[in-house]
Write a protein that binds this DNA or RNA. Sequence first.
DNA 1: GATTGTGAAGAATTTCACAGCC
DNA 2: GGCTGTGAAATTCTTCACAATC
Lengths: 227, 227
Amino acid sequence: MARLPVYLRALAGLAEGGAETISSDALAGAAGVNSAKVRKDLSHLGSYGTRGVGYDVDYLVHQISRELGLTQDWAVVIVGVGNLGHALANYAGFAERGFRIAALLDADRRRVGEELAGAVVRHIDELDAIVRASRASIGVIATPAHAAQDVCDRLVGAGVTSILNFAPVVINVPDGVDLRKVDLSIELQILSFHEQRKAAQARLRSAALPVEPLPEPLPLLAEAVDR
Amino acid sequence: MARLPVYLRALAGLAEGGAETISSDALAGAAGVNSAKVRKDLSHLGSYGTRGVGYDVDYLVHQISRELGLTQDWAVVIVGVGNLGHALANYAGFAERGFRIAALLDADRRRVGEELAGAVVRHIDELDAIVRASRASIGVIATPAHAAQDVCDRLVGAGVTSILNFAPVVINVPDGVDLRKVDLSIELQILSFHEQRKAAQARLRSAALPVEPLPEPLPLLAEAVDR
DNA sequence: GATTGTGAAGAATTTCACAGCC
DNA sequence: GGCTGTGAAATTCTTCACAATC
Protein backbone atom coordinates (compact mmCIF):
# COMPACT_ATOMS: atom_id res chain seq x y z
CA MET A 1 0.00 0.00 0.00
CA ALA A 2 2.89 2.29 -0.76
CA ARG A 3 0.64 4.18 -3.16
CA LEU A 4 -1.73 5.56 -0.55
CA PRO A 5 0.50 8.54 0.27
CA VAL A 6 0.63 9.33 -3.43
CA TYR A 7 -3.16 9.33 -3.65
CA LEU A 8 -3.27 11.53 -0.60
CA ARG A 9 -0.98 14.05 -2.24
CA ALA A 10 -2.97 14.00 -5.46
CA LEU A 11 -6.20 14.44 -3.50
CA ALA A 12 -4.75 17.43 -1.67
CA GLY A 13 -4.10 19.10 -5.01
CA LEU A 14 -7.59 18.28 -6.24
CA ALA A 15 -9.32 19.38 -3.04
CA GLU A 16 -7.75 22.82 -3.47
CA GLY A 17 -9.47 23.03 -6.83
CA GLY A 18 -12.77 22.69 -4.97
CA ALA A 19 -13.73 19.24 -6.21
CA GLU A 20 -16.22 17.45 -3.95
CA THR A 21 -16.07 14.07 -5.59
CA ILE A 22 -13.53 12.38 -7.81
CA SER A 23 -13.63 9.35 -10.08
CA SER A 24 -11.06 6.60 -9.96
CA ASP A 25 -10.11 7.63 -13.47
CA ALA A 26 -9.38 11.23 -12.54
CA LEU A 27 -7.47 10.23 -9.42
CA ALA A 28 -5.49 7.73 -11.45
CA GLY A 29 -4.55 10.48 -13.87
CA ALA A 30 -3.44 12.79 -11.08
CA ALA A 31 -1.44 10.07 -9.38
CA GLY A 32 0.02 8.66 -12.56
CA VAL A 33 -1.36 5.13 -12.33
CA ASN A 34 -4.03 2.92 -13.85
CA SER A 35 -7.63 3.48 -12.76
CA ALA A 36 -8.30 -0.19 -12.01
CA LYS A 37 -5.37 -0.07 -9.63
CA VAL A 38 -6.87 2.89 -7.82
CA ARG A 39 -10.20 1.14 -7.45
CA LYS A 40 -8.60 -2.05 -6.21
CA ASP A 41 -6.41 -0.19 -3.73
CA LEU A 42 -9.30 1.81 -2.37
CA SER A 43 -11.71 -1.11 -2.21
CA HIS A 44 -9.04 -2.93 -0.29
CA LEU A 45 -9.17 -0.45 2.54
CA GLY A 46 -12.94 -0.80 2.67
CA SER A 47 -13.63 2.73 1.61
CA TYR A 48 -16.81 3.06 -0.37
CA GLY A 49 -17.24 5.11 -3.48
CA THR A 50 -20.57 5.64 -5.17
CA ARG A 51 -21.18 3.99 -8.52
CA GLY A 52 -21.92 6.47 -11.21
CA VAL A 53 -20.51 9.29 -9.08
CA GLY A 54 -17.08 8.56 -7.69
CA TYR A 55 -15.47 9.05 -4.31
CA ASP A 56 -16.18 11.84 -1.85
CA VAL A 57 -12.88 13.68 -1.65
CA ASP A 58 -13.01 14.63 2.02
CA TYR A 59 -14.17 11.21 3.11
CA LEU A 60 -11.46 9.57 1.05
CA VAL A 61 -8.77 11.79 2.52
CA HIS A 62 -9.98 10.86 5.95
CA GLN A 63 -10.07 7.14 5.19
CA ILE A 64 -6.58 7.09 3.73
CA SER A 65 -5.23 9.16 6.60
CA ARG A 66 -6.72 6.77 9.07
CA GLU A 67 -5.31 3.75 7.25
CA LEU A 68 -1.87 5.34 7.27
CA GLY A 69 -2.08 6.22 10.93
CA LEU A 70 -1.96 9.95 10.22
CA THR A 71 -4.90 10.76 12.43
CA GLN A 72 -2.61 10.54 15.41
CA ASP A 73 0.58 12.42 16.15
CA TRP A 74 3.94 10.71 15.87
CA ALA A 75 6.93 12.00 17.73
CA VAL A 76 10.00 12.09 15.51
CA VAL A 77 13.63 12.47 16.50
CA ILE A 78 16.02 13.84 13.90
CA VAL A 79 19.68 13.04 14.39
CA GLY A 80 22.17 15.14 12.46
CA VAL A 81 21.54 18.83 11.90
CA GLY A 82 23.66 19.47 8.84
CA ASN A 83 22.15 20.78 5.64
CA LEU A 84 19.95 17.77 5.26
CA GLY A 85 18.81 17.86 8.87
CA HIS A 86 17.92 21.53 8.43
CA ALA A 87 15.98 20.76 5.28
CA LEU A 88 14.07 18.01 7.06
CA ALA A 89 13.33 20.09 10.14
CA ASN A 90 11.99 22.94 8.02
CA TYR A 91 9.97 20.69 5.78
CA ALA A 92 6.37 21.83 6.05
CA GLY A 93 4.77 18.54 5.04
CA PHE A 94 6.20 17.13 8.22
CA ALA A 95 4.01 18.91 10.75
CA GLU A 96 1.06 18.94 8.37
CA ARG A 97 0.79 15.18 8.44
CA GLY A 98 1.05 14.80 12.16
CA PHE A 99 4.78 14.29 12.51
CA ARG A 100 5.92 16.27 15.50
CA ILE A 101 9.60 16.94 15.93
CA ALA A 102 10.33 15.72 19.44
CA ALA A 103 14.02 16.50 19.25
CA LEU A 104 16.91 17.59 17.07
CA LEU A 105 20.22 16.02 18.00
CA ASP A 106 23.78 16.55 16.84
CA ALA A 107 27.21 15.35 17.90
CA ASP A 108 28.74 18.79 17.32
CA ARG A 109 28.53 20.82 20.52
CA ARG A 110 28.77 24.04 18.54
CA ARG A 111 25.37 23.28 17.07
CA VAL A 112 23.77 22.55 20.43
CA GLY A 113 21.41 25.32 21.48
CA GLU A 114 20.63 26.45 17.96
CA GLU A 115 16.93 26.94 17.42
CA LEU A 116 15.41 25.36 14.37
CA ALA A 117 11.81 24.87 13.32
CA GLY A 118 10.62 25.56 16.85
CA ALA A 119 12.94 23.08 18.49
CA VAL A 120 16.33 23.49 20.11
CA VAL A 121 19.26 21.35 19.02
CA ARG A 122 20.54 19.13 21.80
CA HIS A 123 23.56 16.94 22.19
CA ILE A 124 23.44 13.37 21.03
CA ASP A 125 24.48 12.13 24.46
CA GLU A 126 20.96 12.98 25.55
CA LEU A 127 19.47 10.71 22.92
CA ASP A 128 18.39 7.93 25.20
CA ALA A 129 16.78 10.18 27.79
CA ILE A 130 15.01 12.30 25.18
CA VAL A 131 13.63 9.39 23.21
CA ARG A 132 12.30 7.72 26.31
CA ALA A 133 10.79 10.91 27.70
CA SER A 134 9.12 11.89 24.43
CA ARG A 135 8.12 8.32 23.59
CA ALA A 136 9.33 8.95 20.07
CA SER A 137 8.84 5.91 17.88
CA ILE A 138 10.31 7.25 14.64
CA GLY A 139 13.96 8.22 14.20
CA VAL A 140 15.44 10.01 11.21
CA ILE A 141 19.16 9.57 10.56
CA ALA A 142 20.72 12.49 8.72
CA THR A 143 24.28 11.98 9.89
CA PRO A 144 27.46 11.18 7.93
CA ALA A 145 27.70 7.55 6.84
CA HIS A 146 30.24 6.53 9.48
CA ALA A 147 27.99 7.51 12.35
CA ALA A 148 24.78 6.00 11.03
CA GLN A 149 24.93 2.48 12.44
CA ASP A 150 25.85 3.67 15.90
CA VAL A 151 23.08 6.24 15.93
CA CYS A 152 20.67 3.61 14.69
CA ASP A 153 21.64 1.22 17.47
CA ARG A 154 21.19 3.92 20.05
CA LEU A 155 17.78 4.89 18.69
CA VAL A 156 16.62 1.29 18.70
CA GLY A 157 18.04 0.79 22.18
CA ALA A 158 16.01 3.74 23.38
CA GLY A 159 12.79 2.32 22.00
CA VAL A 160 12.49 3.67 18.46
CA THR A 161 10.79 1.12 16.21
CA SER A 162 10.91 2.88 12.83
CA ILE A 163 14.02 4.32 11.21
CA LEU A 164 14.32 6.54 8.16
CA ASN A 165 17.92 6.53 7.03
CA PHE A 166 19.40 9.21 4.78
CA ALA A 167 23.02 8.27 5.35
CA PRO A 168 24.54 6.60 2.28
CA VAL A 169 25.34 3.30 3.92
CA VAL A 170 23.59 0.00 4.53
CA ILE A 171 22.56 -0.28 8.15
CA ASN A 172 21.09 -3.17 10.08
CA VAL A 173 18.19 -3.24 12.49
CA PRO A 174 16.86 -6.04 14.65
CA ASP A 175 13.59 -7.81 13.84
CA GLY A 176 10.54 -5.81 14.63
CA VAL A 177 12.12 -2.51 13.66
CA ASP A 178 11.15 -1.02 10.32
CA LEU A 179 13.85 0.57 8.24
CA ARG A 180 13.46 2.70 5.17
CA LYS A 181 16.22 4.46 3.37
CA VAL A 182 16.42 7.40 1.05
CA ASP A 183 19.54 7.34 -1.01
CA LEU A 184 20.19 10.29 -3.29
CA SER A 185 22.94 8.52 -5.09
CA ILE A 186 20.79 5.48 -5.85
CA GLU A 187 18.13 7.65 -7.44
CA LEU A 188 20.71 9.30 -9.63
CA GLN A 189 22.18 5.96 -10.62
CA ILE A 190 18.79 4.76 -11.76
CA LEU A 191 18.43 7.88 -13.89
CA SER A 192 21.91 7.32 -15.23
CA PHE A 193 20.90 3.83 -16.28
CA HIS A 194 17.94 5.18 -18.22
CA GLU A 195 19.99 7.94 -19.79
CA GLN A 196 22.46 5.40 -21.00
CA ARG A 197 19.72 3.30 -22.52
CA LYS A 198 18.28 6.32 -24.26
CA ALA A 199 21.70 7.11 -25.70
CA ALA A 200 22.14 3.52 -26.84
CA GLN A 201 18.74 3.51 -28.51
CA ALA A 202 19.48 6.76 -30.27
CA ARG A 203 22.68 5.21 -31.56
CA LEU A 204 20.79 2.19 -32.83
CA ARG A 205 18.14 4.29 -34.50
CA SER A 206 20.60 6.47 -36.31
CA ALA A 207 22.61 3.41 -37.36
CA ALA A 208 19.50 1.68 -38.68
CA LEU A 209 18.61 4.65 -40.86
CA PRO A 210 21.95 5.72 -42.23
CA VAL A 211 20.65 7.10 -45.52
CA GLU A 212 17.38 8.82 -44.82
CA PRO A 213 18.21 12.36 -43.74
CA LEU A 214 16.27 13.67 -40.78
CA PRO A 215 13.88 16.49 -41.68
CA GLU A 216 15.73 18.86 -39.38
CA PRO A 217 18.98 18.28 -37.60
CA LEU A 218 18.04 17.08 -34.13
CA PRO A 219 20.75 18.33 -31.83
CA LEU A 220 19.82 15.98 -29.02
CA LEU A 221 20.20 12.88 -31.11
CA ALA A 222 23.49 14.11 -32.47
CA GLU A 223 24.78 14.75 -29.00
CA ALA A 224 23.78 11.31 -27.84
CA VAL A 225 25.75 9.78 -30.69
CA ASP A 226 28.78 11.88 -29.91
CA ARG A 227 29.11 10.43 -26.46
CA MET B 1 17.27 -3.45 -12.25
CA ALA B 2 16.69 -0.97 -9.47
CA ARG B 3 18.69 -3.21 -7.16
CA LEU B 4 22.03 -2.80 -8.90
CA PRO B 5 22.89 0.42 -7.06
CA VAL B 6 22.19 -1.35 -3.80
CA TYR B 7 24.58 -4.14 -4.72
CA LEU B 8 27.14 -1.54 -5.66
CA ARG B 9 26.85 0.09 -2.27
CA ALA B 10 27.11 -3.26 -0.48
CA LEU B 11 30.13 -4.19 -2.57
CA ALA B 12 31.83 -0.91 -1.70
CA GLY B 13 31.51 -1.77 1.96
CA LEU B 14 32.81 -5.27 1.41
CA ALA B 15 35.72 -4.18 -0.78
CA GLU B 16 36.93 -1.97 2.06
CA GLY B 17 37.10 -5.08 4.20
CA GLY B 18 39.59 -6.45 1.70
CA ALA B 19 37.44 -9.20 0.23
CA GLU B 20 38.55 -10.32 -3.22
CA THR B 21 35.61 -12.52 -4.02
CA ILE B 22 32.10 -12.71 -2.71
CA SER B 23 29.35 -15.31 -2.88
CA SER B 24 25.81 -14.51 -3.91
CA ASP B 25 24.79 -15.51 -0.43
CA ALA B 26 27.08 -13.02 1.29
CA LEU B 27 26.15 -10.24 -1.12
CA ALA B 28 22.49 -11.02 -0.59
CA GLY B 29 23.02 -10.71 3.14
CA ALA B 30 24.76 -7.38 2.82
CA ALA B 31 22.13 -6.03 0.44
CA GLY B 32 19.21 -7.43 2.36
CA VAL B 33 17.74 -9.64 -0.37
CA ASN B 34 17.45 -13.30 -1.35
CA SER B 35 20.56 -14.97 -2.81
CA ALA B 36 18.72 -16.45 -5.79
CA LYS B 37 17.66 -12.93 -6.67
CA VAL B 38 21.25 -11.76 -6.61
CA ARG B 39 22.33 -14.57 -8.89
CA LYS B 40 19.50 -13.98 -11.30
CA ASP B 41 20.12 -10.24 -11.40
CA LEU B 42 23.83 -10.69 -11.99
CA SER B 43 23.45 -13.44 -14.56
CA HIS B 44 21.06 -11.15 -16.35
CA LEU B 45 23.75 -8.61 -16.97
CA GLY B 46 26.01 -11.32 -18.35
CA SER B 47 28.54 -11.04 -15.58
CA TYR B 48 30.18 -14.33 -14.79
CA GLY B 49 30.89 -15.66 -11.36
CA THR B 50 32.91 -18.79 -10.71
CA ARG B 51 31.11 -21.86 -9.43
CA GLY B 52 32.46 -22.98 -6.12
CA VAL B 53 34.13 -19.60 -5.57
CA GLY B 54 31.82 -16.65 -6.10
CA TYR B 55 32.18 -13.32 -7.87
CA ASP B 56 35.34 -11.28 -8.18
CA VAL B 57 34.53 -8.10 -6.29
CA ASP B 58 36.43 -5.64 -8.48
CA TYR B 59 35.18 -7.16 -11.69
CA LEU B 60 31.63 -7.13 -10.40
CA VAL B 61 31.87 -3.48 -9.39
CA HIS B 62 33.11 -2.65 -12.85
CA GLN B 63 30.35 -4.64 -14.57
CA ILE B 64 27.60 -3.07 -12.53
CA SER B 65 29.03 0.40 -13.01
CA ARG B 66 29.11 -0.14 -16.73
CA GLU B 67 25.56 -1.42 -16.80
CA LEU B 68 24.40 1.63 -14.88
CA GLY B 69 26.27 4.02 -17.13
CA LEU B 70 28.54 5.17 -14.32
CA THR B 71 31.71 4.77 -16.34
CA GLN B 72 30.91 8.03 -18.02
CA ASP B 73 30.33 11.46 -16.53
CA TRP B 74 26.88 12.94 -16.36
CA ALA B 75 26.35 16.66 -16.12
CA VAL B 76 23.73 17.52 -13.49
CA VAL B 77 21.91 20.79 -12.94
CA ILE B 78 20.54 21.48 -9.47
CA VAL B 79 17.72 23.99 -9.24
CA GLY B 80 16.99 25.43 -5.82
CA VAL B 81 19.80 26.15 -3.39
CA GLY B 82 17.96 26.06 -0.09
CA ASN B 83 18.92 23.64 2.63
CA LEU B 84 18.15 20.66 0.49
CA GLY B 85 20.03 22.05 -2.50
CA HIS B 86 23.03 22.65 -0.24
CA ALA B 87 22.86 19.12 1.08
CA LEU B 88 22.71 17.74 -2.43
CA ALA B 89 25.54 19.88 -3.74
CA ASN B 90 27.78 18.85 -0.87
CA TYR B 91 26.87 15.19 -1.09
CA ALA B 92 30.08 13.30 -1.70
CA GLY B 93 28.55 10.25 -3.35
CA PHE B 94 27.59 12.57 -6.14
CA ALA B 95 31.00 13.24 -7.62
CA GLU B 96 32.25 9.79 -6.70
CA ARG B 97 29.82 8.14 -9.06
CA GLY B 98 30.51 10.39 -12.00
CA PHE B 99 27.81 12.97 -11.47
CA ARG B 100 29.33 16.37 -12.17
CA ILE B 101 27.48 19.45 -11.03
CA ALA B 102 27.20 21.55 -14.17
CA ALA B 103 25.28 24.32 -12.48
CA LEU B 104 23.50 25.46 -9.37
CA LEU B 105 20.50 27.70 -10.03
CA ASP B 106 18.21 29.70 -7.79
CA ALA B 107 15.44 32.23 -8.28
CA ASP B 108 16.64 34.34 -5.36
CA ARG B 109 19.14 36.92 -6.62
CA ARG B 110 20.62 37.21 -3.14
CA ARG B 111 21.89 33.67 -3.49
CA VAL B 112 23.42 34.26 -6.90
CA GLY B 113 27.21 34.36 -6.73
CA GLU B 114 27.46 32.19 -3.64
CA GLU B 115 30.05 29.48 -4.05
CA LEU B 116 29.08 25.97 -3.14
CA ALA B 117 30.80 22.65 -3.72
CA GLY B 118 33.09 24.19 -6.30
CA ALA B 119 30.31 25.77 -8.33
CA VAL B 120 28.86 29.27 -8.29
CA VAL B 121 25.14 29.79 -7.89
CA ARG B 122 23.57 31.43 -10.92
CA HIS B 123 20.18 32.90 -11.60
CA ILE B 124 17.45 30.68 -12.91
CA ASP B 125 16.93 32.95 -15.91
CA GLU B 126 20.15 31.50 -17.24
CA LEU B 127 18.76 27.97 -17.06
CA ASP B 128 18.21 27.45 -20.74
CA ALA B 129 21.60 28.77 -21.81
CA ILE B 130 23.47 26.85 -19.13
CA VAL B 131 21.76 23.54 -19.78
CA ARG B 132 22.39 23.78 -23.49
CA ALA B 133 26.00 24.83 -23.07
CA SER B 134 26.80 22.12 -20.54
CA ARG B 135 24.74 19.48 -22.33
CA ALA B 136 23.34 18.50 -18.97
CA SER B 137 20.91 15.63 -19.29
CA ILE B 138 19.92 15.29 -15.63
CA GLY B 139 18.08 17.94 -13.67
CA VAL B 140 17.45 17.94 -9.92
CA ILE B 141 14.52 19.96 -8.61
CA ALA B 142 14.99 21.13 -5.02
CA THR B 143 12.64 24.10 -5.16
CA PRO B 144 9.44 24.82 -3.25
CA ALA B 145 6.43 22.89 -4.52
CA HIS B 146 4.83 25.79 -6.33
CA ALA B 147 7.84 26.33 -8.57
CA ALA B 148 8.51 22.70 -9.42
CA GLN B 149 6.37 22.22 -12.51
CA ASP B 150 7.61 25.42 -14.12
CA VAL B 151 11.23 24.52 -13.43
CA CYS B 152 10.62 21.05 -14.77
CA ASP B 153 9.13 22.42 -18.00
CA ARG B 154 12.08 24.72 -18.46
CA LEU B 155 14.58 21.93 -17.87
CA VAL B 156 12.84 19.68 -20.37
CA GLY B 157 12.60 22.53 -22.85
CA ALA B 158 16.33 23.03 -22.60
CA GLY B 159 17.03 19.38 -23.34
CA VAL B 160 17.13 17.63 -19.99
CA THR B 161 15.80 14.08 -20.30
CA SER B 162 15.96 12.86 -16.69
CA ILE B 163 14.44 14.65 -13.72
CA LEU B 164 14.89 13.93 -10.03
CA ASN B 165 12.18 15.76 -8.12
CA PHE B 166 12.42 16.54 -4.42
CA ALA B 167 9.57 19.03 -4.35
CA PRO B 168 6.52 17.60 -2.58
CA VAL B 169 4.18 17.79 -5.54
CA VAL B 170 3.20 15.58 -8.46
CA ILE B 171 4.74 16.93 -11.65
CA ASN B 172 4.26 15.88 -15.25
CA VAL B 173 6.82 15.27 -17.94
CA PRO B 174 6.38 14.49 -21.63
CA ASP B 175 7.04 11.02 -23.03
CA GLY B 176 10.69 10.17 -23.34
CA VAL B 177 11.65 12.02 -20.18
CA ASP B 178 12.35 9.96 -17.06
CA LEU B 179 11.07 11.24 -13.80
CA ARG B 180 11.89 10.01 -10.33
CA LYS B 181 10.76 11.58 -7.13
CA VAL B 182 12.00 11.52 -3.59
CA ASP B 183 9.34 12.47 -1.14
CA LEU B 184 10.30 12.78 2.49
CA SER B 185 6.74 12.93 3.62
CA ILE B 186 5.80 9.75 1.75
CA GLU B 187 8.59 7.82 3.42
CA LEU B 188 7.41 8.97 6.81
CA GLN B 189 3.83 8.07 6.01
CA ILE B 190 4.87 4.55 5.14
CA LEU B 191 6.66 4.28 8.47
CA SER B 192 3.60 5.68 10.19
CA PHE B 193 1.52 2.96 8.57
CA HIS B 194 3.82 0.28 9.94
CA GLU B 195 3.94 1.87 13.38
CA GLN B 196 0.20 1.85 13.50
CA ARG B 197 0.08 -1.81 12.58
CA LYS B 198 2.61 -2.64 15.25
CA ALA B 199 0.49 -0.80 17.80
CA ALA B 200 -2.64 -2.61 16.63
CA GLN B 201 -0.92 -5.97 16.88
CA ALA B 202 0.32 -5.22 20.36
CA ARG B 203 -3.24 -4.37 21.32
CA LEU B 204 -4.47 -7.65 19.91
CA ARG B 205 -1.81 -9.66 21.63
CA SER B 206 -2.48 -8.15 25.02
CA ALA B 207 -6.23 -8.56 24.54
CA ALA B 208 -5.85 -12.22 23.60
CA LEU B 209 -3.91 -12.98 26.74
CA PRO B 210 -5.77 -11.05 29.39
CA VAL B 211 -5.04 -13.39 32.28
CA GLU B 212 -1.50 -14.62 31.84
CA PRO B 213 0.75 -12.01 33.39
CA LEU B 214 3.84 -11.07 31.40
CA PRO B 215 7.11 -12.22 32.99
CA GLU B 216 8.31 -8.65 33.19
CA PRO B 217 6.34 -5.51 32.49
CA LEU B 218 7.16 -4.58 28.90
CA PRO B 219 7.04 -0.79 28.77
CA LEU B 220 6.85 -0.67 24.97
CA LEU B 221 3.78 -2.85 24.83
CA ALA B 222 2.15 -0.89 27.57
CA GLU B 223 2.76 2.37 25.77
CA ALA B 224 1.32 1.02 22.57
CA VAL B 225 -1.85 0.08 24.39
CA ASP B 226 -2.13 3.50 25.95
CA ARG B 227 -2.40 5.24 22.62
C1' DG C 1 -24.85 7.22 -18.78
C1' DA C 2 -21.27 7.07 -15.58
C1' DT C 3 -18.62 4.79 -12.36
C1' DT C 4 -17.55 1.38 -8.79
C1' DG C 5 -16.16 -3.20 -7.15
C1' DT C 6 -14.22 -7.45 -8.33
C1' DG C 7 -13.61 -12.09 -10.35
C1' DA C 8 -10.63 -13.82 -13.87
C1' DA C 9 -6.78 -13.41 -17.02
C1' DG C 10 -2.31 -11.97 -17.75
C1' DA C 11 2.29 -10.28 -16.63
C1' DA C 12 6.03 -9.75 -13.80
C1' DT C 13 8.68 -10.98 -10.01
C1' DT C 14 10.41 -13.99 -6.57
C1' DT C 15 11.73 -18.22 -4.85
C1' DC C 16 12.81 -23.08 -5.12
C1' DA C 17 15.70 -26.62 -6.23
C1' DC C 18 19.06 -28.85 -8.61
C1' DA C 19 22.22 -29.92 -12.53
C1' DG C 20 26.69 -28.41 -13.70
C1' DC C 21 31.11 -26.73 -12.64
C1' DC C 22 35.25 -25.51 -9.97
C1' DG D 1 32.06 -29.35 -0.73
C1' DG D 2 30.79 -24.94 -2.16
C1' DC D 3 28.75 -22.09 -5.33
C1' DT D 4 26.78 -20.45 -9.78
C1' DG D 5 23.30 -20.36 -13.42
C1' DT D 6 18.74 -21.32 -14.57
C1' DG D 7 14.43 -23.93 -15.75
C1' DA D 8 10.17 -24.55 -13.31
C1' DA D 9 6.94 -23.48 -9.66
C1' DA D 10 4.96 -20.22 -6.74
C1' DT D 11 3.69 -15.89 -5.64
C1' DT D 12 2.54 -11.23 -6.19
C1' DC D 13 1.10 -7.45 -8.86
C1' DT D 14 -1.39 -5.44 -12.71
C1' DT D 15 -4.82 -5.06 -16.05
C1' DC D 16 -9.03 -6.38 -18.29
C1' DA D 17 -13.74 -6.52 -18.60
C1' DC D 18 -18.22 -6.49 -17.04
C1' DA D 19 -22.18 -7.07 -13.75
C1' DA D 20 -24.05 -4.17 -10.22
C1' DT D 21 -25.41 0.27 -8.78
C1' DC D 22 -26.43 5.06 -8.58
